[in-house]
Design a protein around this nucleic acid. Structure first.
Lengths: 246, 246
DNA sequence: TTAGTGCGTATGTGTGGACAAACTGTTGAC
DNA sequence: GTCAACAGTTTGTCCACACATACGCACTAA
């Protein structure tokens, strides 16, 4: 038996119709109203039920297929994916992640400098000659437990950063508030073992495992705004993601 | 000056028109014909140049925006992203990755078993009661250099696996050849340090850093086909990806 | 000089229709 | 009884059109 949708569509809302449908179906899947593995009515029928055109309905379903929540097969139909799906790895900061998880992250600024960039950083960020960088190192903890040691470089023509500001909130939040719209980031995840310096700060033993992450973030004007090198205690942090076949 | 496109469109090809455009633009960007940061003509004009409708043109550009190669701004136009963009982290095996990189991966099967699943594995794979698993451990090397130690479980109702087959090619290749269409995978990346067993096999020192990866893969019918726990030498392997803000 | 207004331009959203291609189950021939 | 051809269903692709909305710039008025 194919499942119908019962989603309120508000045509006066500023939220696009297809996105209202996306939110509605996602809510039904995550709440269990649409069971894993169940089959949906065909596109034409669903569009008619919600008084939408088929292209609009399809656009909504396209997004859900990309997100990995639905699976389509020509000549057969559309199904809800059986396994639970995490949200796609997002372009967010550790601070936001922890905050959303109900944790209380605290930040200690270990070093803070503002000036011209070293050559390798200037190259990584593709900096014009007259643009400098903020360079700072932070220790991020949850409760009393240190979690991450983070070194970052931010070009100084996108926002004004202060040591005080970095203590108060996440770097990404500050940059977003300053009008930076992040678009994408190149990221590399690896592993290393703690040296004495890292071990002392992270309150772990030298030689214990650390997750390493290097990231360079790009804004909507195509500038490389920020690059950083982070290490995380492996016993407290790992990267989870859902990969979707295209 | 806004850039035009010069892409051959073959309307008799089985490849959809919008995908031909995607391939064409991507090729122009990667070859440098379209320079990073350069602006494209507007959608209407580009569609006209290629004798396509605007929706088709937009669908192509949508994909490139999602892939992080283009950036659009309403009222302004479409630009090529300045920084170089890696391909999105794909649902592929280490074997494929190495082969594409021109390497010659070799595989040693350390253990191979076929039978009923342990309870935690049965739960992870959501196995029906009468389905068993293949359980095997492999050592993957490039040249003489060991790179990864991989333990996997595969449900036995999707394909027939043999020790010999696993020596010859990658697990994903075997499963694909057997008609399994992978759709998505949940994956977790972390770090650990090598114990004596791992160190000996990977020809490194106990206590050296290893990248860990756990993955469960889902096929297009929604079944959890495979799960595995891998460790990689951190000095030889890391995970690279491009995150795209949506 | 400067702040605000308006207009042109480009992308964003939504509709309707047409035909193609793939999969499934059934029918019919041998 | 087996297998191939066929028809029905459903998603995939493509087009033409209309209107909404955001951005940037030039012009205007205080």
């Amino acid at each position: 038996m194919a499942a119908s949708l019962n989603i309120p569509i508000d045509r006066s809302s500023p939220i696009p119709l297809y996105h209202q449908v996306v939110q509605g179906i996602e809510a039904m899947i995550r709440s269990g109203t649409l069971e894993p593995g169940s089959r949906l009515e065909n596109e034409i029928e669903l569009a008619a039920q919600l008084n939408l055109s088929r292209p609009t309905m399809r656009k909504a379903m396209d997004e859900l297929v990309r997100a990995g929540l639905l699976v389509r097969k020509r000549g057969v139909g559309t199904q809800v994916v059986a396994s639970q799906v995490r949200r796609h790895l997002e372009l967010s900061s550790l601070f936001d992640d922890l905050s959303r998880g109900g944790k209380q992250p605290t930040t200690k600024v270990l070093a803070f400098r503002h000036g011209p960039a070293e050559r390798d950083i200037a190259e990584t960020l593709q900096l014009p000659p007259d643009v400098g960088v903020y360079h700072f190192t932070r220790l991020r903890s949850v409760g009393e437990k240190p979690l991450a040691l983070m070194e970052n470089w931010v070009r100084d023509d996108v926002a004004e950063l202060t040591e005080e500001g970095l203590r108060q909130s996440g770097m990404y939040q500050i940059l977003r508030d300053a009008g930076v719209n992040f678009r994408l980031a190149n990221q590399r995840i690896g592993a290393t073992v703690a040296d004495e310096y890292q071990a002392e700060l992270l309150e772990t033993a030298p030689g214990s495992a650390l997750v390493t992450m290097e990231r360079t973030a790009v804004d909507d004007t195509g500038r490389n705004v920020e690059t950083g090198r982070h290490v995380y205690r492996a016993d407290s942090y790992s990267f989870e993601m859902t990969l979707v076949q295209r």
